[in-house]
Design a binder for these strands. Structure first.
Lengths: 134, 134
DNA sequence: CTAGTTGCAAAGAGTTTGCATGGCG
DNA sequence: CGCCATGCAAACTCTTTGCAACTAG
């Protein structure tokens, strides 16, 4: 797992791109089509896999394909994320009640929750009143 | 949305297949390759989309593609599901503490949780002691 | 110099769509 | 009979892989 890693222009620019959009969920396509990044698509996929493995970014799986998000100093590993099924926004839920949930599940249901991999789906505040549809 | 729907042999057999595996998470491939079901792959995808739309089955999104699960009398719409990242088992979490979680998120964070679409990831009881690896 | 990385193009998986035929109601 | 469903194959999207050239350390 801890293989030697080289520092290349492509890798740096992809990481920088994530760093400049810390809250965004980016698809591989977003990266590939971004004008700031010059890298072949195979390289992008390979870099995303590496960065995910190293924990610098996180990978989510959605209907349209994988999404990647910057993992700033690991802080997002400690709270849940909500994703709006309507507009796609990610809400960071830094809340004690929710934090106790993983403890409860661990203690009472013997299941070690991986908060960083979990996304809770629903409809966000903005989309609730005028819930037109998809 | 509520278009007229015909009852066909293919549709019935797919639904019957789900009914006979109420807890299984099935991929489109599982259905297509199942010897009990005679239907072209396009038909399977179309039926799965219809059934999901009608609420008879639920759709999850995983790394390898979409997974579908039988939605018996809607009872699974009221509790969370845990999925083991190691062995893939789905655990149904019918628990009051967890039920209050969605209420909490709705009341305090103004986010209408869709329990039926949410899967909490982690490591299940069986995979925790001998957590070899992926 | 060595080993990891890149880029292109081809290959693959999963899913969708076009169109003529078939079947439910 | 009208309309939805089916089947087949082609099309598409997202992702992976092979391989030769390249580059960081």
């Amino acid at each position: 797992m801890a293989e030697k890693k080289y520092r290349t222009r492509q890798r740096d620019s992809i990481l920088a791109f994530f760093a400049s959009h810390p809250d965004a969920c980016l698809s591989a396509k977003d990266i590939i089509e971004s004008p700031e990044i010059e890298a072949g698509e195979a390289t992008v996929f390979r870099c995303l896999a590496h960065l995910t493995e190293e924990g610098l970014i996180k990978k989510y799986t959605s209907d349209e394909g994988a999404l990647y998000q910057y993992n700033r100093t690991g802080e997002c590993n400690h709270h849940f994320h909500l994703k709006c099924l309507h507009c796609g926004t990610i809400v960071h839920l830094d809340c004690d009640v929710l934090r106790s949930v993983s403890e409860h599940i661990g203690a009472h249901h013997r299941f070690a929750v991986d908060v960083s991999r979990t996304v809770i789906y629903g409809i966000c505040e903005n989309c609730q009143p005028n819930r037109t549809n998809e």
